[in-house]
Each structure stands twice: as C-alpha cells, then as structure tokens.
C-alpha cells in the first residue's frame, strides 16, 4: 500500500504535472472526440453538466457515470486529472458527511451523499473528456461563434498555449530563490518552519513573475493588435471568415445520434428498474 503511494507521489513532480498539462492543452492526439465540431461538443457537454443535477434516479446516474467514464477513457484523459478528481471527490464526500453528522444527522446521511458524489463525477468526467480532446483554437472559435466576447475566447486559447511556459518560468524562479536562499535550520513542530518558508517563496516569486509576464503580455498584445485583433472583433465580415472552418459533418451527426440513443436507453432502463 505504502509502495503505491510512493509511486504516486514520485509521479507528482512539477515536471510531470507540466507534461500532463501540456498534453491536455495541446491535445494533438487523434481521439474519438477530437475530430468533432467544437460547437456541438460544447452544447453536448453543457447538457451533461446540467442535467445530472435534476436526476434523482440512481440507475440513470450510474449509467451516465459509466458512459462518461468510457468516453473519458477513449479521450485519453491524463492520469493527473483523474487523481485530482478522486482527491476532490473524497474530500467533498468527507466534508458532507461531517456536516451531516455534525448537524445531528445519522449515518443515513451517508447514503444521501452518494448520488451527489456520482453527479459530481459525471460532470467532471464529461468536461474533462471534452476539454482534453479539444484543440484550444477550435474551442475559442466555437466560443466566438456563440457570441462570447472575443477577449474571453482569445483568453482561452492563450491560456492553454501559455500555461506550460508560465509554469516552467515560475518553477525556475522558485529554484533560483532556493539556490540563493537558505532553508530554515530547524523543522519546527509539524514542519511549520518549512511550510512558512515555502509559502513565502511562492508569494515572493510572483514579483519577478509579474514583471516578466507584463513584458511578455505586451509583446503578445502588440503582435495581436498589428493584425487588427480588436477591430476584427467588431467586424462581422472578419468574424464570418474566421468561423467558416466550423462545420457539422456526418461524423458529428453519428456521434450525437449514438450518444443520445445510449442516454435514452439508460433513462428508460432507469425508469423501469429504479434503484
């Protein structure tokens, strides 16, 4: 058991996190979901992130969770995100149980929490499956076509692209802080001296980080404005040209048809055999 945890934590280095995020962000791999029209995918994921809240039938919920699990597997969601999801679900679970007990409930409250946990799982899995396999450019184009302000949709693709660079820079600043600085000599009770030291570094590292990012931001924005970013945002013709690449084709219709048939099946089964 201990070994498993050690393995897990050895994988949780900053380097690995960066690689995983890069994979999520760049998403160039061909997966089942990556060829689909992003607009359709967004509507699809909105449906699956909203509907579970209104379903109170355990059979349907379990069915949907399995469906999302399969889709997430096919979309090759990174293990890091899965681990974070599990940690999140567990902590939410314990929190809710504690609140229920604290407020004079009994262990029946435990049973009441399970549907909620499954709902959170469905939502997270579906959004992970969609956003892992979607190309950031495609995603921002889809947002633009929904009438989301150009700033936001640009922010999305910028965020996805720049994040690995930003993390790397932050990491190197922290390392240089540590090289030049001195670790506290004593651990203190519960390592509190170390914790304070690292938190202090992580805050102070943002000082050079802010200046560097400001410089980089200026370069990016100037390059954008030279190409007329802000003005093309208001020009309908330019927008139309930009969004011309988005098309629904046969594959999209097949995907929608298959997933809706499966969902309807799950709902019907749930109606007849409610848990």
């Amino acid at each position: 058991m201990l070994n498993v945890f050690q393995k897990l934590f050895s994988k949780l280095s900053v380097e690995n996190i960066k690689i995983e995020l890069m994979r999520t962000a760049y998403g160039t791999e061909e997966t089942v979901l990556s060829r689909l029209d992003p607009r359709m995918l967004i509507v699809w994921s909105l449906f699956f992130t909203t509907v579970p809240w209104f379903i109170h039938n355990m059979t349907i919920l379990i069915g949907l969770a399995v469906l999302m699990g399969v889709l997430a597997y096919m979309a090759r969601v990174s293990p890091l995100l899965i681990v974070l999801l599990i940690i999140g679900v567990i902590s939410q679970f314990t929190y809710l149980i504690f609140v229920a007990l604290f407020l004079g409930g009994t262990f029946t409250a435990l049973l009441a929490v399970i549907p909620l946990t499954i709902k959170i799982m469905i939502i997270s899995l579906s959004s992970m499956a969609v956003f892992t396999s979607m190309d950031p450019e495609k995603f921002s184009d889809a947002l633009l076509s929904f009438g989301v302000p150009g700033k936001f949709s640009f922010g999305v693709s910028y965020g996805y692209r720049m994040l690995p660079i930003l993390i790397e820079e932050y990491q190197s600043i922290i390392q240089s802080f540590r090289l030049r600085g001195k670790m506290p000599a004593k651990k203190g009770i519960l390592y509190w001296r170390y914790i304070v030291y690292f938190l202090k570094i992580s805050v102070l590292a943002f000082y050079p980080m802010m200046l560097n990012t400001a410089k980089r931001t200026r370069t990016t924005v100037e390059a954008l404005e030279i190409r007329g970013f802000s003005y093309s945002e208001e020009n309908d013709l330019a927008k139309k040209l930009k969004l011309k690449a988005l098309k629904m084709n046969k594959y999209d219709y097949q995907f929608v048809a298959i997933t809706s048939v499966i969902t309807i099946c799950i709902i019907n089964i749930g109606m007849f055999y409610p848990l």
């Binding site: 994040l163 930003l166 980080m209 400001a214 404005e225 970013f229 802000s230």
Partner: peptide, 25 residues
Amino acid sequence: TQSQKMMVFVLSMALFGLSKMITEI
C-alpha cells in the same frame, strides 16, 4: 487605449490563473 486594456486583461488572467492553479495543487 484598446491594446492597453487588452494587456491588463491578459496579464491579470495569466497571473491569477497560474496562481489559482498552484493553490489547487
């Protein structure tokens, strides 16, 4: 100006997003 607004927006987005990610981990 138009581009300065954009710069402030992007700067704040990138920095706060990064920090939020760190606190998440």
